[in-house]
Amino acid sequence: MEKQNIVIIDYEAGNVQSVKYALERLGVNAEISNCEKTIRQADKVIFPGVGEAAWAMKKLKETGLDQLIPQLKQPVLGICLGMQLMCAHSEEGNTKGLGLFPVNTLKFPAEDKVPHMGWNQIRQLKGKLFEGIETESYAYFVHSYYVPLNEYATAETHYIKSFSASLQKDNFYACQFHPEKSGDIGQAILNNFIKL
């Protein structure tokens, strides 16, 4: 595999280590950083996230990452809260997002247990991220807010209602599920991102 310079954005919002380990299992060394120069020079950028939206946006603003991320030209992959923060707005903490996808993140209605936690199937798979991935494959989700289906959805999942499991617009990719925790399927999706 060609040597790649992948940077995982560090803004104190969880699971960075497990993303790094997942990339290492694919033979790629990733750097965890919040340095603007390092992120700009990366071949690819991963924007992870676990935690609360308003708190995470505050952390991004403190370091100017909220300005930097939308300017990036290389492939960027948002994961979980990272994906939700790439949208226009989140109902969680009434938070304005980065606006890369013109859709809003909503709270699950309390018709079933929340968070949506565990393995669920992804379908209507489109685009390079899902090349070679079979429809109805299982991925691991943990979230209480969701992005409704929209024109940028490249995968969907059903829990309480059908929602976006993945989004793509230009160089911005996003997964609601955790590819770094989704077994072989997750590894294959991350590998597709590496190969972009």
Partner: peptide, 8 residues
């Protein structure tokens, strides 16, 4: 464990 495990 975290280095080798692909599940939560």
């Amino acid at each position: 464990v975290a280095k080798v495990l692909t599940i939560p």
